[in-house]
Design a protein around this nucleic acid. Structure first.
Lengths: 237, 237
DNA sequence: GAGTGGTCTAGACCACCTG
DNA sequence: AGGTGGTCTAGACCACTCG
């Protein structure tokens, strides 16, 4: 349960960046400063800082230091984080409408990923959610996962509408990595009503497979995203 | 000019994966094996392996080892690499048609990124390329960069049609990171002719900004991608 | 020249997986 | 039980930035 030291440090710094103790363009304390202030080895501190680089919070510059990154105007939905966590940083005006509450039944036929027999036999927890950003419906998400002893998900309400937070709270399940595929598609009648756009308007369609720290448990999503007002952004390295 | 040891090792392993010495699902030699065989410290080896994880070549598993990743069927164009490098792994049938050869003139008005005065004064090297994968036109790319002493780019042919390889060869310029934004759009008359698809068909539109190891030199791209046959894939972590 | 991050070594203990 | 990767310490030298 105890987090490793480097994650404690990176979480602490992340918190200070999000709350504005360190602002975009600021220099973080140098690695040797933190060595003294936190009484940690330099390698541990570097591991923490690399974590922040990977998540896009800072960039490092030889001879200068670690600089807090400008937050982007676009929605960084391609990253590994959930919708609420990503957008919560930018605006309080993020909401989720649960169209179909989590419930358990059979997996759909011709599912978009191939499943293990363990997953098929466990049955499928399914839910459908519509995400809003500043009053606009931005993303429609169908989520599927195997019911491997996860009945809390459909017997109780999701914590703040977030699947990831609920999985973490009830079962200590966290996301380890993601595969995704992106396509451009055209809105059919049903999608055009959902997003209040014209039939034939362009949408992104993303298939995702999330891997978790629990062996054999994966989460599958099909996402439609309206990029008319908000583009989807991402940074590498 | 000399590469650090961890990059030499990661390049060596990458080469062995690409050429098939290690196949998808194979275990790489353990960290302590490589410590002996390459006479390197374990931290250096771990740095090399983390490089491969970041680029999606392997995944690491506590207690088991490092496993070579399955190569995806989708086109991993969201990654930092250039078109040729990414697709060259899957098929030899990758080609580039240069529609407008690199030449230098003024920057377009209302350019999609804001430019530094240094960039504006240097003028703009522009080129337009259409990329084919297995005979299908998949991607239309407009590329722009400031002419900061890069006249070799338009006075000679690009090396194998690749801008990145030419920059590397002539000027030792490499890409350090990328920002990009993705939108779904609809083919107009001109795009529908280019991709041989119907007017109104959906396309991805991506704006990219590549940062390089040369300070102040950035490369800007506007990409249209036809995802009808090939999806765009990416893995995280 | 002083301070920064980048690379590298030589150790150590731990949790996890598999036979 | 033996081997694997994950975390951590205590040092060292280097290239780069800036005043």
């Amino acid at each position: 349960m105890e987090l490793p030291l480097y994650l404690k440090l990176s979480n602490e710094l992340k918190y200070q960046i999000i709350t504005g103790d360190f602002k975009a363009g600021d220099l973080l304390p140098s690695e040797s400063d933190m060595r003294k202030s936190h009484n940690l080895n330099r390698a541990t501190i570097r591991q923490a800082l690399n974590e922040l680089v990977k998540e896009g919070y800072i960039s490092k510059h030889k001879g200068k230091g670690s600089i807090v990154t400008e937050r982007e105007a676009s929605l960084e939905l391609l990253s590994i984080k959930g919708f609420s966590e990503v957008l919560g940083k930018k605006s309080d005006d993020v909401s989720t409408q649960i169209i179909t509450h989590p419930h358990c039944n059979k997996w759909p036929e011709n599912f978009f990923y191939s499943l293990s027999t363990e997953e098929i036999e466990a049955g499928c927890i399914y839910m459908k959610r519509l995400r809003f950003y500043e009053q606009d419906s931005v993303m429609l998400e169908d989520t599927y996962l195997a019911d491997l002893g996860l009945s809390n998900l459909y017997e109780q309400d999701l914590i703040r509408g977030s699947l990831f937070q609920s999985l973490n709270f009830f079962y200590q399940i966290t996301i380890s990595n993601v595969e995704q595929e992106i396509k451009a598609v055209i809105a059919d009648t049903s999608l055009s009503k959902t997003f209040k756009i014209q039939k034939g308007a362009p949408l992104l369609h993303i298939y995702r497979k999330y891997f978790t720290n629990r062996n054999g448990l994966n989460i599958y999503s099909s996402l439609y995203i309206n990029t008319e007002k908000y583009r989807i952004g991402y940074k590498f390295q």
